[in-house]
Nucleic acid binder design. Structure first.
Length: 585
RNA sequence: GCGGCCGUCGUCUAGCCUGGACUAGGACGCCGGCCUUCCAAGCCGGAGGUCCCGGGUUCAAAUCCCGGCGGCCGCACCA
């Protein structure tokens, strides 16, 4: 069924899909009547249905089937600037740009430096680039005009919150920060246990400089993402379902192998972890779930490759990232997901910016008694010495570490805190026994993040089939936007039409996404249904009037079976779950 | 952002070079009717076009020129 690639010329398939998508109402460029704005796409009636099914598929695989550990939330698409300052996006999610004062042309400052001066601009600050361009008298390559200041073009969409210009807000470029910011609440609601996955489906915006590639690179799109929080000291316990997919095979291309020019290797999840190709068990496990997801939307197993990103290509927060790529006809291997090990970068940053405690208390199996040295102040002595200043001196003193106090006493025979002298006799260091019931840890995060629109396009590519001059969208049955079509054999036979309409209504009542069609010949209607990928077509014929049976026709084989009309909902349900057509009879 | 190619009913396209007879033609699709006992049959009728947008040249512009927008390809970019 999925012979799609290779069957078509390189750009051929894209053209066909693009036409079909517009013609039948799946997707098209937005704002067409005003000339269009690149980077934005509308989903039409069938496109939305298909997207819902793809999202449901993802939700089933990542959330529902792991519901003991993974929950879904929803957070706003606009955040106050501090959130993206903490996340590093305000600083890092930028390109340096410089404009010619004469022509107004804009250039990437780092590119000018690299091309005109032959100096690598990697890691340079804006000031450094600015200084360098001025020192070397770099002029506009187009007209020799003087260049302005180097500024950072930030890919975040900026807005203001409320009527005050100072209250800058940003449209989120990823969902992750919503989960990090809400982490404490969700953790509490889930009774403070790790591992904890927080998932979300939502729209994000990235103000790309020049987006192209139709639905593949958009300025606004939908992401399906999960932040999976784990105890960094308990890698084994962090992935309790690891065995379920330990033997799952993935095609992986490590950064080192890529540099050596090697091909991706087929390897099991277990082996990839043992051989340290994937640095974390959870990362590997969720990659395997990602593999399942790709296959569930119709991508053949060997058309999915996980490609590791190199140190310079990785995002600022990541210590290992794999792009989950899928082969497409026009754009080659495209990324449908990123799988990142984000460590504790995000939570640590939010802790320092917000001052909130985002650690997780990790109880020991049994409380441990530990002997610790503590600094005690003799309040009597200090009280008499410092009077009303005494409480401050005492608290300062006790905030010092035991080591610092011991060191100072040994060296000077007294302690000086913030200019207050504390004599030796006012300080006591004692060893006390304390009961410790656990410790606080900052969780690490594993993040699988999927682009929904890309998944939708990829599903389209692998579904697109031509047979005998007809187009069939052979989506996996359970993601088909419309599930069942109902036809009377002839359109001008009132008895057939009446029964067919009743059956259609019954199927709608039963919760199916169905269409009714009585226009044109029966063959034409089958063809129409094939073109939007309806897996099952029910036909009411003369025999229906005699014995209340109807035929079900399979989109992919064009074969039919006859079933009792009363059994239709159950039969269709079974069929959509993958039962062979013959088993329905 | 740079360079190349391109932009005509819903879709694909003819016309553009060589301006006028274009009331912009066709095919498919769509809608209505007839016919039809299972795979885009046939017949009849119908709807549907800012010829991407703006400006210029001309008596006259889908057609020539300029600018913009959008698309595709290559380079760059894509935490």
């Amino acid at each position: 069924m999925a012979l799609a690639l290779g069957q078509w010329g390189m750009s051929d398939l894209y053209e066909k899909i693009s036409d079909l998508a517009k013609r039948r109402g799946f997707f098209w460029p937005s704002y067409e009547i005003y000339g269009g704005v690149s980077g934005f796409y509308d989903l039409g009636p069938y496109g939305v249905l298909l997207k819902h099914r793809i999202v449901d598929k993802w939700r089933e695989l990542f959330v529902r089937s792991h519901q003991e550990y993974v929950v879904e939330i929803e957070s706003p698409i606009i955040a106050p600037s501090v959130v993206f300052e903490a996340s590093g996006h305000v600083e890092h999610f930028t390109d340096p740009i410089v404009a010619c004062k004469q022509s107004g042309k804009k250039y990437r400052a780092d590119h000018l430096i690299e091309e005109l001066l032959g100096i690598s601009a990697e890691g340079m600050s804006l000031e450094e680039m600015n200084k360098l361009l001025k020192e070397k008298w770099v002029r506009c390559p187009a007209d020799g005009g003087e260049l302005g200041e180097v500024t950072a073009f930030n890919l975040l969409f900026k807005t203001q919150i409320g009527p005050y210009e100072g209250d800058v807000g940003y449209l989120r470029p990823e969902l992750a920060q919503g989960m990090f910011v809400a982490f404490k609440r969700v953790l509490e609601a889930m009774r403070n246990r790790l591992p904890l996955g927080i998932a979300q489906v939502g729209r994000v915006g990235r103000n790309e400089i020049s987006p192209r590639q139709a639905m593949i690179r958009l300025r606004e799109f939908t992401i399906m993402e999960m932040e999976y929080f784990i105890d960094p000291e308990d890698k084994e316990g962090s992935c309790p379902f690891f065995e379920e997919r330990a033997k799952r095979r993935l095609k992986v291309l490590s950064y080192e192998a890529k540099r050596r020019g090697e091909e991706p290797q087929s390897i099991t999840v277990e082996e990839a972890v043992e051989e340290k190709i994937i640095i974390d068990r959870c990362l590997a496990y969720w990659m395997a779930v990602g593999q399942d997801f790709a296959e569930s939307i119709g991508v053949p197993a060997d058309m999915v490759v996980f490609v590791e990103k190199g140190p310079a290509e990785r995002a600022h927060y990541s210590s290992q990232t794999f792009d989950q790529t899928v082969k497409t006809s026009r754009w080659g291997w495209i990324e449908i997901a990123g799988h990142s090990y984000r460590g504790d970068y995000d939570l640590s940053r939010h802790m320092s910016y917000s001052k909130a405690d985002l650690t997780v208390f990790k109880p020991f199996k049994e409380p441990v008694n530990v002997k610790v040295k503590k600094v005690f102040a003799d309040k009597g002595v200090l009280g008499r010495m410092y009077r009303e200043k005494a409480p401050e001196v005492i608290s300062k003193l006790q905030s010092l570490s035991v080591e610092a106090v011991e060191e100072m006493l040994a060296r000077e025979g007294k302690i000086v805190v913030e200019g207050y002298a504390v004599p030796r006799e006012a300080v006591k260091i004692e060893e006390v026994e304390e009961k410790v019931t656990g410790k606080k840890v900052v969780p690490h995060v594993v993040e699988p993040s999927f682009g929904t629109d890309r998944a939708l396009y990829v599903a389209f590519e692998y579904a697109y089939t031509e047979r005998e001059g007809r187009v069939i969208l052979a989506f996996p049955r359970d993601i088909a936007p419309v599930q069942v079509a109902v036809f009377p054999l002839l359109e001008n036979e009132p008895a057939l039409v009446k029964v067919a309409r009743e059956i259609y209504k019954e199927l709608v009542r039963e919760g199916f996404q169905a269409i009714y069609d009585d226009s044109g010949s029966i063959g034409r209607r089958y063809a129409r249904a094939d073109e939007i990928g309806v897996p099952a077509a029910v036909t009411v014929d003369y025999r229906t009037l005699e014995d209340s049976t109807v035929t079900i026709r399979d989109r992919d084989s064009w074969k039919q079976v006859r079933v009792k009309a009363a059994d239709l909902p159950a039969a269709i349900r079974k069929f959509l779950k993958g039962a062979p057509l013959e088993s329905l009879a």
